[in-house]
Design a protein around this nucleic acid. Structure first.
Lengths: 201, 201
DNA sequence: GTCTATACGCCGATAGAC
DNA sequence: GTCTATCGGCGTATAGAC
């Protein structure tokens, strides 16, 4: 027990990242000062620079880690057969993953314009890779004749915008439960591309 | 001709608002300084305060004017018969209106968190009124048995998110024309709520 | 109506004590 | 590993000359 006041290296780093994510999501990157982040963690501003070279890296790392996690989780989905089942799975996954990480999602979608060019390019590439996994599903579905989409790129962006919008209103313990929300959005996504809805799971 | 350097009252005000809207959209409210806005207009920073009491009012006024215009334009749509036609009309209107004002839309959707509480409440009420016009269409359609939506509130938010997403990628002179984009989105919206698509106009 | 000058505070980041 | 103290700069907003 009773420990010296110093040496909290293993926990301070993550706490700084968590505080930054929370404050960036709530007030925006530009509106949050390093002093505010430090205060939230309970250290002085100078101590932050033991864990990040500067404020910009803090933002870029948060966004990169979020997108890396998203891509990894998406790649780890169990294989399913047929475009309809794949779109259903993707929609439910997207909703669930985003519902669980509202702050990270908010930062990753809203702070792109505050990234320096090099960081922007890198983050944008990750986002594009994620979109491409959805577009591949839509292309396969169209080729198989089960989706009716005039333009797969447009449909991809429309679906992602619709699904991501869940983070604007969903609150834990609200009127609609998580599984319900996933099911409704998945059904709307399938309908939107002209697929026959899947039987309820 | 040859006019004194002063007295540009009628044009400086709108130019300040236009510059602020553009810069806020591009870099975010918190990241833009009054000095930058003044520089864009070609006046000194102090002169801005002849046209706005402070920076916060500049933001709130931009957002309020945008939403007022949106509501007025929406209310002025010609009447059409039947939920499907009304949803089709709403979707095309929403896409078109948003495509024409990308900066205003961006600011109105992204800078809510930078509004002081009183301004936030007022702006949020306008946004809610707009959403309600869509929800009324969905409720009527469900009552008439032509839309299949488990929850009209959720469907409203999902559709608005999908439609508004167009501003993230649409560019004048791009691969897809404006009418094409409107038609595709409107068809996706109708599909999403389980309506039979309208015959192509 | 616009300018210049300025008040006053907070910003990100660093240096050096402990 | 954290703190205190500090640097130079830029932020919003105002005062007063023209």
């Amino acid at each position: 027990m009773a420990r010296k006041t110093g040496s909290h290296s293993e926990i301070t780093g993550p706490r700084i990242r968590a505080a930054a994510e929370h404050l960036f999501a709530r007030h925006g990157y530009a509106a949050v000062s390093m002093r505010q982040i430090a205060a939230e963690v309970g250290v002085q501003a100078g101590a932050l620079y033991l864990y990040t070279p500067d404020k910009q890296s803090l933002l870029a790392d948060l966004m990169r880690d979020h997108l890396d996690g998203l891509l990894a989780a998406c790649a780890a989905l169990p294989p399913v057969n047929g475009p309809e089942a794949r779109l259903d799975q993707f929609a439910r996954f997207h909703i669930g993953y985003h519902i669980d990480r509202p702050d990270a999602v908010f930062v990753a979608y809203m702070e792109l314009r505050n990234l320096e060019p090099a960081n922007f390019t890198a983050i944008e590439a990750l986002r594009r890779r994620y979109e491409n996994t959805l577009e591949a599903i839509l292309r396969d579905g169209r080729a198989a004749g089960v989706f009716a989409v005039p333009d797969t790129k447009l449909a991809t962006l429309a679906l992602i915008a619709m699904l991501t919008g869940v983070t604007n209103w969903y609150r834990e313990g609200g009127r609609l439960g998580r599984a319900e929300v996933e099911a409704i959005y998945a059904a709307m996504a399938l309908n939107a591309v002209g697929a026959s809805p899947l039987p309820t799971r």
